[in-house]
Each structure stands twice: as C-alpha cells, then as structure tokens.
Design a protein around this nucleic acid. Structure first.
Lengths: 233, 233
DNA sequence: AAGAAAAACAAACGCTGTATATTTACACCG
DNA sequence: CGGTGTAAATATACAGCGTTTGTTTTTCTT
C-alpha cells in the first residue's frame, strides 16, 4: 500500500540517463532514428527496462520535447534580460538572434519541437503547452511592453475573431497578461522568424553562404520597423 | 545485351500504382508511416517486388516528393497566369493565397516536401531541385517582373555575399533570368509565407479559428506594401 | 523453338516497439 | 531478525519493418 522509495539514487539517475543518451543519439543520427533498444544497449540495460521509467516511446519523446522547450525558453529569457526593460528594440533584437542561434546550435531539438520527427507521434498539448508557452511568452511579453508604452505600431492589424480567450489563458499567465493584440503581433513575428530559421535548418535555402546572416538581420530589423515606433528617450 | 522492353503496360502501370497507393497511405496515416509492405499488400504483390521499380524506399519517397513539387508548382503557375502580366500585385496576391490553399489541401504533401518525414531520408538535391525550382520560380518571376518595371522597393536590401552564381544557374533558367536581387527578395517572401503556413499545418498555432485567414491576408498585404510600389497605370 | 531478360516470389536476416511472465533485490513491519 | 510486498530488471516472444538472396515464372526477341 505504501509507495516504497527504493535506493532512489540509481533510479532517478537512470530516468535522466535515458534522456541524456537519447539526446546523444538524436544529435548523432537525428530524431527520427531514435531507438529504445539502442538507448538500452548504450546504458547496458535491456530495452523493456525503459518501460519502468517511460510508459512508451512517445512518453520519452514528450519528455525530450519539454526539455527542449525549456532550454529554448531559457535562451530567450536570458537574451531578453540582457537588456533593460525600457530598451524594447534592444530586447527584440536580442530575442530574434537568440532564437536563430539556439536553433542553429541545436537543429535536432528545433526539428523535434516543430517537425514531425517520430512516425506515429503527436505531441500531447496538455503536457507540452506550459513549456512551449513559457518559451514564446518571452516575445509576447516584450510586444506587450511596447503596447503598454505606446510604441506598438499595429493600428491596421486585423481584428482576430473573438471567442478563444479561454484557450489563451495559459498564454496570459506567462506573458504578463498580454493583450490579444500583442499576442497576435507576436504570433506573426514568430511565424516570420520561424519561417526563415526552419528553412535554413532544413537546408532548403540556396547556398547563400554567410549571406543568410545578412538576410536574417534584415528581416529582424524589418519586423522592428514595421511594428515598433522609436520610444521617446 | 539489348534492353528488352516488356509489355510495358502493366509495368508502367504498376510503377504509377505504387506511387498512387503510397499517396493514399500518406494521406491516411501520414508520411512517416509509409510502409513498402503495406503498399505491396494493398496491391496484392509481395514487398520485394517493389524493388523492381524503385531501388529502395528512399527512391520512392524522392519520386513522391517530385510529384508533390510538380503539383505545387502547377497550382502556383495557374494562380499567377490568372492575372495579366502587368498586374503584379494581383499576381502576388494570387500566388500567396494559392500557396496556402494548396498546403491546406495537401498537408501531408507539404510536410513531405519541407519536413523530415522519413527516418533516414535526405532528399537528393540533384533530382529534386528542378521541380522545386520550377515551383518557386513562379514567385521569383513575378518579383523579377516588378524589378524590371521599376516597382520593386528594395533599396535597403542587404547585399548578399557573391560567389554563388553557379549554384543558382538552375533558378535563373526557370525564372526568366532573374536578377540576384529578385531572387533574394523572393526568398524572404517565401520564408514568411512558409513560416505561417507551416505553423498552421503543424497545428502549432493557437486556436485562432477563422482568424488565421485574416492574419494571413494581413501578412500577404504587408509583404506587398513593404516591397512593391504601385505601378503607374 | 530457343534463349535472354525482366518480374514476381518465398524465405530469411536483423532491426524495431511492445506485451507478458518471471526473477532479483530492496524496504519496511511485526 | 525473518517474512512480505513492491519495484526494477530480466528473458522471452510477437508482429511489423526494410532489405538481401536465390529461385521460379512470365514474356519478349531472335
């Protein structure tokens, strides 16, 4: 009846060790090649033993995705907080470049998050959403700060259909009770950045070489010019 | 010594039938779940028989991707040619919406093209590039037409590093010998459109409902306003 | 008719995720 | 201190996968 904690050291370590080994394999051979048996082999255990820590492969993938989102969010939070609260353009710039830098540094993680890396897998929103919202809430918070400061240039922004406030509760919690407008603008910015980064990671871009840097920088500043007024300093 | 054409009817039919069945399976269960054995089962043949038509699964996937690109390109060409050559904004608008319409109508094909749908698969550029270039050459051609007409607003566009002309030969063939500037602008537009569409298809967008339509329309017109001057009519 | 080549097949190999049943080892309680 | 319950790891097994190999059937050319 009473849940009996075992030695607890090895157990928890194994749970983490499984994820760690999984990351190594993903980094080496790509996310879709993830194999429970290979992980078990590397850890010196048998494949079914993993089922003591994750009910099935999808659960492991979910855990990996959450970890990836957390790392992704950390990177963006750090980038944002490197600039003072009032320097909205500075924060935006930093976030945009941190986004690409993280994605290029961990392309497999990025594809694990946004791609369809595993055959039958669909991410369970309930578990993933919090960490995802935390990561994208960073951008939302800065946009919202601009809106509050009156430097958000979004007069002609299309009115988004109402009636989905409930679904966005979680977003608001992590982004300082952002307005729906800020959320929409952030969404569009996110889409632009994701578009370029995902194409670059997938190798779908022509061999522009170092030119991609310039193109990305141009896109970031385009976004800033389109949506943000200079703050009165 | 002499290559002997067989009855040719059944053979070619089977080659096409394999692709057709593959599409049905992809539509039903998604691209990553593609299985040679399942295809063979549906066709009433054995799995190794497929190897007479495609050397391995990757070759089949490549053929499918090329077909998808062709269909994708057809849709964009049709959209463009529905407007007269001088109506550049009209053509851009049509292409943009045709892009999303095709992607939403064939999400699996879209992910097959841009995602990493099959475990160990990497698309062989040599075979895929022509059909890919044909599809994106449509946008490039319209941007180039604007440049020639003097309505392309890209003064502040970043200078892309030179030295990659050779790699872009193919692009030029399909886009009316487009200038490098047109190519770069088209690339940025493509990235923006792809960003929003890919997020929508992946289900990563919040449940904006019909609001996505408005958001997409806004993004399209934003692109037009940023990069294109009204033609003197 | 004879020979060559293409197409299909049957069987097998090694791999995968997963289910089941069994053994081992630890933690607690009387 | 010994018994007991539970968690963790195991061995075994199943069905499915892509692919290889060797063999047989079919079909066309000469």
């Amino acid at each position: 009846m009473s849940p009996r904690p075992r030695k607890d050291e090895r157990s928890i370590n194994l749970q983490e060790a499984i994820k760690e080994t999984a990351w190594q394999y993903i980094a080496k051979y790509g996310a879709p090649a993830l194999s429970l048996r290979a992980i078990a082999r590397a850890l010196g255990i048998t494949a079914p033993a993993i089922y003591n820590y994750y009910p099935d492969r999808d659960a492991l993938v979910t855990a990996l995705i959450i970890d990836a989102y957390t790392s992704f969010g950390d990177a963006q939070i750090a980038a944002r907080d490197a600039f003072p609260e009032e320097d909205i353009i500075g924060r935006l710039h930093a976030i945009g470049h941190a986004y690409r830098r993280w994605a290029l540094a961990h392309p497999q993680r990025y594809q694990l998050i946004f791609g369809t890396p595993v055959p039958g897998y669909v991410a369970p929103m309930k578990q993933v959403l919090p960490s995802a919202v935390r990561a994208f809430g960073v951008l939302v918070s800065v946009v919202e700060a601009a809106r509050r400061a009156g430097t958000l240039r979004a007069d002609s922004f299309p009115p988004i259909k109402p009636g989905y406030e409930a679904a966005l509760e979680e977003w608001k919690r992590f982004s300082g009770d952002a307005d729906v407008l800020s959320l929409s603008v952030a969404l569009l910015i996110w889409a632009r950045v994701h578009g370029m980064v995902s194409l670059e990671i997938a190798g779908s871009l022509p061999p522009f070489g170092a030119g991609v840097d310039a193109l990305y920088e141009y896109e970031i500043t385009s976004i800033e010019r389109q949506f943000f007024r200079e703050g009165e300093s």
